[in-house]
Design a protein around this nucleic acid. Structure first.
Length: 593
RNA sequence: GGGGGUGUAGCUCAGUUGGUUAGAGCGAUCGCCUGUCACGCGAUAGGUCGAGGGUUCGAGUCCCUUCACUCCCGCCA
C-alpha cells in the first residue's frame, strides 16, 4: 500500500461499496452544479467519478482548482443509483464521496487541452509531449507498444533465441544510408558512427557460436522523414540464426507474426502461410516490391498490342517504337462509373508526375468496342487480344500507362492504391502478409551506370557458389527477402555470404578490390576466415508493426518522444549548440556560414 | 534539394467579391445552478491575422519574398 492511494482510478467497483479508500490522479474533468460538484480523477488505469456537496469543507477549494491538477482524494465508495450509472466507465457503477483532499501537483494554464478528442498541431503536441501522452488514444498506443515488445521477447525466448546487446558507438560503413557521426575525444579527428543496424555484429554473434540471436535493436539513419519513417532512430526486431536456409527464417517469422497479430488485433490474417512472390513478379503484377495484397487489382503487360496495324493510338505507338512499354490495370464492372471517376484518376496521375492515364471501357453491342476517350483507337480484334491477356470481360475498364519500365511501374503501383481505395476494394479489417523473394544481387546505378549491390552486400548469391558465373552480374539472384504487410515493408533479410573468397569476388563486381574489403569490412572478413557457420536472418521494424496493430498511419502516434520532420526534439531542444570548450576537447571547429 | 497543403485568441476552427470595431466552440477569470458524466446558464479578459515588402482610398482576404509545421518525390545497403 502507498501513502498516496489504496486503489487506482480504474479499480473500484460495486464490491468496494461503503468502504473508505484513497485514490490519486489528475483532475480530468469538472462538472460544477453550484452546490454539487463532480470531479473525474484519472490515472494510468482509468477514471473514477468523485462527488462533493457544498456542506463539505473541501468544496470551496475543489471548485476552484484547474484541470490536470494532481490530487489525492480520501473518501467513501458509494453505489450509484440506477439512472446515474455510467456504462462507459469500468468504475461507472460507483462514485467516491469526497471527505478530504490533498493537492499533490499544481498546474499552470494548459497549452493544450488533455480532455478532448480534437486533433491539434504536431508542433504543440511534440513540444508538450508529456501532456499529449496523457490523452487516451496515444496513451493506449504506447502501452500497446510496451506489451507488443514484451510479447515478442517472450516468444523469441520460447523459440530458443538469446537476446544480446550490441555497441551503439561503432564504425562508419561505406554502404547504405547516411551515418550519424560521433567525434572521438581520445582519438582526435576520428569518428564513431551510430549503427544503421547491428548487421555486422549479429553476424559476428553467429561466428561466435551463439546459434540464435535476437535484439530489440535501436537503429540510426540520417535520412529524411516520412509518415512511416522517423528521422534519426527507429527499432528493429533483429534476428539472426545459424545453420539455416531461408525457409527456416520464414518459419520463425511467420510463427511469430501470426501469434503476435492474432494476439493484439481483431483484424483477420488473410494468410497463415505467407505467399512468396518473386521480386520480378511483384514488379510486374503490382509495380512495387511492397504490394498491398488486400488490393485485388493487378497490372498486365500489353506493349505488343501497340505494334498492331489495327490499333491507331498513335501517341502510344510512337513511344512504343522508341522503346517504351505499356501496362494496364483492369477494374471489374466499372462501365457504369460516372465520367468523373475516370477523369479524376487521370487528373490525379498528372499530379503524381505522370503524363496521365489513358482509359477505356470494354462494351459489347453487336461487336466489342472500346468506350472512352481512347476507346475508338482499338479494333475489335485488338480488344479481344487485350481481353485474353488481362482476363478482362465486357463491362470492365482498363487504365493504361506508357513510358519506361520504371515510370510505368511507379505510376501503376500508385494507381493500384488510388483506384483500389476509390472503388473501396481494400478490406481494412485484414492483414495481408507476403514474402518478396529472389532479389537481384546487383543493380545498375541509374546515374553512374556502374554495377552496385542492390541490397545487402553480405547476402549469399543463389546458384552454384563454387563455380559462380560473374559474367552477367545483373542476372545473379540473392537469398535476399522482404516481408510486407498491407503494402508496408516491415523488413528485409537475407541468408548471408559466409565464404570470404566468394565475398571478395562479389565485391570486385561492385568495384571494391580485396584491399578495400579488407580495410572497410575488416571485422567481418576477418571473422569469416576462422570458421563461420552458414547463417541468415531478418529484422522486422518494430515501429511499423505497432503502427499496423494500432491502426495508425503515422509513426509518431506509436513513438513516445518522436522528433519532428526536421529531426528536432521540440521538447528537449535537440539538436542544440554546445560549449566552445566541448568542441575544443573534441578538436572540432564550427565553420560559420 | 524539389513539389503540394496549412498558418487567424492558450487550443480547435469560421471569416463571402478587398469595405464599419476580426467571430464561434473549448479553455481561463467572475457569477448563478444538488445528479452530471462533452452538465447547463450569464458575463469578462484574451488578437503583431506566421514575418517582411508591395498593389489599393482601404488587405486576414490580392501579388512578391521569407519562416514554421506537415504530406509526397529524391534519399532510406
Amino acid at each position: 500500500m502507498s501513502k498516496y492511494r489504496t486503489h487506482t482510478c480504474g479499480e473500484l467497483n460495486i464490491k468496494n461499496k461503503n468502504t473508505d479508500i484513497s485514490i490519486s490522479g489528475w483532475l480530468n474533468k469538472k462538472r460544477d452544479h453550484g452546490n454539487l460538484l463532480f470531479l473525474d480523477l484519472r490515472d494510468n488505469y482509468g477514471i473514477t467519478q468523485c462527488v462533493i456537496d457544498k456542506e463539505s469543507k473541501s468544496f470551496k477549494d475543489l471548485e476552484k482548482i484547474p484541470l490536470e491538477t494532481v490530487l489525492k482524494i480520501n473518501g467513501t465508495v458509494l453505489q450509484r443509483s440506477d439512472e446515474t450509472v455510467n456504462k462507459d466507465l469500468s468504475t461507472g457503477e460507483i462514485e467516491v464521496k469526497i471527505k478530504t483532499h490533498v493537492i499533490l501537483g499544481t498546474t499552470k494554464e494548459l497549452p493544450l487541452p488533455v480532455f478532448t478528442d480534437q486533433e491539434y498541431s504536431e508542433e504543440i503536441r511534440l513540444k508538450y509531449r508529456f501532456l499529449d501522452l496523457r490523452r487516451k488514444k496515444i496513451h493506449k498506443n504506447i502501452i500497446l507498444r510496451s506489451k507488443v515488445i514484451s510479447f515478442i521477447r517472450n516468444e523469441m525466448q520460447k523459440m530458443g533465441f538469446l537476446e544480446f546487446q550490441t555497441p551503439i558507438l561503432t564504425s562508419s560503413s561505406p554502404e547504405g544510408a547516411r551515418d550519424f557521426l560521433v567525434p572521438s575525444r581520445l582519438n582526435p579527428g576520428k569518428f564513431y558512427a551510430l549503427p544503421q543496424a547491428p548487421q555486422q555484429f549479429k553476424q559476428l554473434i553467429m561466428v561466435s557460436g551463439f546459434d540464435k540471436y535476437f535484439q530489440i535493436a535501436p537503429c540510426f539513419r540520417d535520412e529524411d522523414a516520412r509518415a512511416d519513417r522517423s528521422p534519426g532512430e527507429f527499432y528493429q526486431l533483429d534476428i539472426e540464426m545459424s545453420f539455416v536456409d531461408q525457409s527456416n527464417v520464414f518459419d520463425v517469422v511467420e510463427k511469430l507474426m501470426v501469434k503476435l497479430f492474432n494476439n493484439f488485433s481483431s483484424k483477420k490474417m488473410l494468410y497463415d502461410k505467407f505467399p512468396k512472390i518473386k521480386y520480378t513478379d511483384a514488379l510486374m503484377m503490382y509495380g512495387s516490391d511492397k504490394p498491398d495484397l488486400r488490393n485485388p487489382l493487378k497490372i498486365y503487360e500489353i506493349t505488343d498490342i501497340f505494334s498492331r496495324d489495327d490499333v491507331k493510338f498513335e501517341i502510344f505507338k510512337k513511344l512504343v517504337k522508341k522503346g517504351s512499354i505499356v501496362r494496364g490495370i483492369v477494374t471489374k464492372q466499372t462501365s457504369n462509373q460516372p465520367r468523373s471517376f475516370f477523369d479524376n484518376i487521370d487528373k490525379w496521375a498528372k499530379t503524381e508526375g505522370a503524363s496521365g492515364l489513358a482509359y477505356f471501357t470494354i462494351e459489347k453491342d453487336k461487336i466489342i468496342t472500346g468506350k472512352g476517350p481512347v476507346g475508338k483507337f482499338f479494333s475489335e480484334d485488338s480488344l479481344k487480344e487485350i481481353m485474353k491477356i488481362t482476363s478482362a470481360e465486357v463491362g470492365d475498364s482498363i487504365f493504361l500507362a506508357c513510358g519506361t519500365k520504371n515510370e510505368v511501374e511507379k505510376i501503376l503501383s500508385l494507381a493500384r492504391d488510388k483506384i483500389g481505395s476509390d472503388l473501396n476494394l481494400i478490406d481494412e479489417n485484414s492483414f495481408a502478409f507476403c514474402w518478396i523473394i529472389d532479389y537481384p544481387m546487383f543493380e545498375k546505378d541509374e546515374e553512374t551506370g556502374k554495377i552496385k549491390f542492390s541490397h545487402n552486400p553480405f547476402s549469399m548469391p543463389q546458384g552454384d557458389i563454387d563455380n559462380i558465373d560473374l559474367s552477367n552480374p545483373l542476372e545473379i539472384l540473392a537469398y535476399q527477402y522482404d516481408i510486407v504487410c498491407n503494402g508496408i515493408e516491415l523488413s528485409s533479410g537475407a541468408i548471408r555470404n559466409h565464404i570470404p573468397q566468394l565475398m571478395y569476388k562479389l565485391f570486385k563486381v561492385a568495384g571494391y578490390d580485396k584491399k578495400d574489403v579488407d580495410v572497410k569490412f575488416s571485422g567481418m572478413i576477418n571473422a569469416l576466415s576462422y570458421g563461420a557457420p552458414p547463417h541468415g536472418g531478418i529484422a522486422p521494424g518494430i515501429d511499423r508493426i505497432i503502427m499496423l496493430l494500432a491502426d495508425e498511419k503515422n509513426i509518431r502516434e506509436v513513438t513516445m518522444f518522436p522528433m519532428n520532420q526536421n529531426a528536432q526534439d521540440l521538447m528537449m531542444n535537440a539538436p542544440s549548440e554546445v560549449e566552445g570548450t566541448q568542441l575544443k576537447e573534441l578538436g572540432l571547429e564550427i565553420k560559420k556560414k
